[in-house]
Nucleic acid binder design. Structure first.
Lengths: 193, 193
DNA sequence: GCTTTTAGCTAATCACATTAGCTTCTGTCC
DNA sequence: GGACAGAAGCTAATGTGATTAGCTAAAAGC
């Protein structure tokens, strides 16, 4: 029997693809093995466990999502950059439902690599926010606000939570617009409230 | 052997409590049975399956969260009402991590009761938004924006995604403030963008 | 060609969900 | 007060999916 020529990277990549098809939670070692033309136990030569596989997919997804959104904002500034970033974020989430779910996994306590990758993916967002002249606490608030909004919207949308007929694209645009307007208002935030 | 006096409601309620302790995904029939002082198969007298149990917990959670947030906004109006609603939402999510995860389950296709409960929980939010004089598409956009923001923030927070030292309460307040300001601006949204 | 390494395999174990079928409370009807 | 129907619990058994043990043979280094 000729060998399949697998490796950790191949297995994780195939797992990510499969997760997009059947859902991150429905991903099973048996299913993935079948997809790769191999018997289930053989996968354990390349990944330590199902949990390790999930972690690998999560890391890959975080990197991909971060890169994709960051790339979209390159060469743009201000509101334009935010919209490009936000649109790319949502599109990626929609196009890769399994990976997106994976990307939401919080790093396990003590998992330095995962924490680093997760932080990394936020850096691009900070860069975009910095274009508004926000600093320190205001920049953190703004980045958190944008991240919450993008994640919340994408997550509700992928869960099918928006039942009403109103155009979802427009609602998203309106949300991002509102936040952008808030950013423009400058930093009257750090004082009061 | 004296009977335990269980019933669907008791079992689901205990399941919700247990989910808050061990995590919604780690909830297992065996664990719940042990908690109730009963052998695993006995639970099947009261709930059809693990999936039905999860659905029951989700329904209960959606009702509780909706009620809690709605109650907080009673007797208030405008920005005040939004903040009260949003604070109650986040507090509940933080105090009931297992239930909160459950509440995010999208209704299965064709599950009318679940859909109704889910819709119901959004109604209170619409009422709050209506206080700003928004109608139709603008009201939908506003409700979606608030929901996305609250959910996104609560979800990222509960996943431990906010690593920086900046006070998380303040960031949340800033986010809600920004959205409220956007609402106040009226409805210049439906036209452009 | 020979040895070492190691990918992939089969067989076996384990954890949990779930089903089948038996036993024993419990409330109700006489 | 006792007999009965129905339901609540139980034990035993099945099935699926993860994981481990140990064997075999393909690949790589010599």
């Amino acid at each position: 029997m000729p060998r399949a020529g697998l490796g950790p990277a191949t297995v994780i990549a195939a797992g990510a693809d499969l997760a997009d098809e059947v859902g991150f939670d429905a991903l099973t070692m048996g299913l993935l093995a079948e997809r790769l033309g191999v018997r289930t136990p053989s996968l354990y030569r390349h990944v330590e466990s199902l949990d390790a596989l999930r972690r690998g997919i999560a890391l890959q997804a975080k990197r991909e999502l971060g890169d994709e959104a960051a790339r979209a904002a390159v060469g743009r500034a201000g509101p334009d950059a935010v919209h490009a970033f936000a649109d790319a974020y949502r599109r990626w989430a929609r196009d890769h439902p399994g990976r997106y779910t994976a990307s939401l996994r919080a790093p396990a306590a003590g998992d330095e690599e995962d924490r680093r990758v997760s932080d990394e993916s936020v850096r691009a967002l900070f860069a975009v926010v910095a274009g508004f002249g926000l600093h320190d606490d205001d920049a953190v608030d703004a980045a958190r606000a944008l991240r919450s909004a993008m994640h919340g919207f994408a997550s509700l949308e992928s869960a099918g939570a928006f039942g009403l007929p109103r155009d979802v694209d427009r609602s998203y645009h309106a949300l991002i617009d509102t936040l952008v307007s808030g950013l423009r208002a400058g930093s009257p935030r750090s004082a009061g409230t």
